[in-house]
Design a binder for these strands. Structure first.
Lengths: 205, 205
DNA sequence: CATCGATGTGTACGATGTCCACATTGAAGG
DNA sequence: CCTTCAATGTGGACATCGTACACATCGATG
C-alpha cells in the first residue's frame, strides 16, 4: 500500500503522482494563467520527468480537465455550504457571492473551468452540472415553476459574467468585501428587489 | 501608394499584409479554437514566411489583440444598429440578442475577445469600453440614475455569460431563433418584466 | 539610375506535446 | 527467499511552435 499523501516515495516511484500533478498544476496555474501552463513545467514542479504524467493522464488536456473537475466540485461544496437564510432571496445572493469569491480565490482554475480546453470533457461537465443543480434546488424553492428555468440560466450566466469581469479587472480592483457588495447590488437591482439595502454598508464601489 | 485591398502585390511584397493576416487569423479561428491557432499557420494561410507577421505585429499576442479589437468594434456596430424600439425595454433586449448573435456568428473571435490572452491590451480594452458605452447610453435613457450602473454591469455580465454558455453548448444546441427567444425570456424574467410574452411565436429577432 | 527604408525570407535556437523503447520498483506466487 | 510481472518513471527523439538575427528584395525618392 502506498503512502496516502502526496510527495512521498523512495525516489524512483513517487507515491501518488496523480494527485501531486494536480497540486503542481494548481500551484503553477495561480502564478500564471492557463495556456502558459506547460505539462513539462508541471512535471518539473512535481520533480518527475516530462513523460511521467502520461502514465496518469492521457493528455495535457486530460490533466487540465481533471483540475477543472476538481474546481467544480470545490465550487459545489462552497455553494452547498451557504446556510439557508431567513429571507427567501438571501440564499441566492449568498451563493452568488460564494461563486464570485471562489473565482477570485482561484483565478487560474476558474478560467480553466470555463475555458474551451476542458469544456467538452464528460467528467468536467458532470461536475459542472452538479454545481448548478445545487443552485437550481434553492431557486426552485422560492420561484414559481415557469420562472425557475430562466432564473437558473440567468443567474448562472450573470454570476459567471460578473466573475469574468472581476477577474479581468474590468470593474476596478475591489476588495473581497467590495466585490461581494457589488454582486449583491447588481443581483438586487437586476431581480426586482430594487436597491433596498437593510444595512447601511457601502453599495457598489 | 499600395493597393488598398488585400492580397495584391508583385510576389515578394504582399500589398496589405497587416489586414490580410487578420483575415487569415479570423478564418483559422473559426475552424479551430484559439490556443490551437499558431502564428505560423496564419502566415502560411496568408502565403508568407513564418517571420513576415513580425513586421506588422510585435507578438502573436499583438495579432490576437488586434483581432479582438476588431471584434469589439464590429460588435459595437451591431449594437449601435439596433433601431430604437417603441417599448422602453425592447431596445435592451434587442441589443442583448445582437450581442449573443455576434458570439454565435464568430465563436473563435468572441472567445478571443474575452480570453485572458488579449485582456490587458489597451486598444482592446478601449474598443470593449466603447461597445459597453453604447449599451450604457440606452440603459441610461430608461432607468433611474442610481440603477444605471448596476444595470449596466449586470446586463453586460448576463449577456456575456449567456453567450459563453451557448458557445459551449451548455444550453443545448438551439437554432438562432431559439437562442434569441431564450435570451429574451431570461432577460424578461431576470428584470422585473415577468414572463409575459405578447405574441405566441418565437419572440426576439 | 543610385540609394534607402520598408517589407519579406532563411536559418537557428530553445521550449513544448507526445511517441517509443528501456529502467526500476513493489508485490504476488512458487 | 527468490522469481516474475504489471505498474510506474526515465531518456531520447521528432515535429511544431514562438521568436531573434542576418540577409534579400522591392517601391519610391533623389
Amino acid at each position: 500500500m502506498w503512502t496516502l499523501s502526496t510527495s512521498t516515495g523512495s525516489g524512483y516511484h513517487h507515491g501518488d503522482l496523480r494527485a501531486a500533478l494536480l497540486d503542481s498544476a494548481l500551484a503553477l496555474l495561480n502564478s500564471e494563467g492557463p495556456g502558459e501552463l506547460s505539462l513539462r513545467a508541471v512535471a518539473r514542479h512535481a520533480g518527475v520527468s516530462p513523460n511521467a504524467p502520461y502514465r496518469h493522464y492521457r493528455d495535457k488536456e486530460a490533466l487540465l480537465a481533471a483540475l477543472a473537475t476538481r474546481g467544480f466540485t470545490e465550487l459545489g461544496e462552497r455553494l452547498a455550504a451557504v446556510a439557508p437564510g431567513e429571507e427567501p432571496g438571501a440564499e441566492v445572493i449568498s451563493m452568488a457571492c460564494a461563486a464570485v469569491d471562489y473565482a477570485l480565490d482561484h483565478p487560474g482554475v476558474y478560467r480553466l473551468m470555463f475555458g474551451q480546453a476542458c469544456s467538452g470533457h464528460p467528467d468536467t461537465i458532470a461536475a459542472s452540472d452538479a454545481a448548478i443543480a445545487i443552485v437550481a434546488e434553492r431557486i426552485a424553492a422560492v420561484a414559481e415553476p415557469e420562472r425557475r428555468e430562466p432564473l437558473r440560466v440567468g443567474i448562472w450566466a450573470l454570476v459567471h459574467g460578473l466573475s469574468t469581469l472581476l477577474l479581468d479587472e474590468r470593474l476596478g480592483t475591489p476588495t473581497r468585501a467590495e466585490a461581494d457588495a457589488l454582486v449583491e447590488t447588481v443581483l438586487r437591482t437586476m431581480l426586482g428587489a430594487g436597491p433596498e439595502r437593510p444595512d447601511g454598508g457601502s453599495a457598489a464601489r
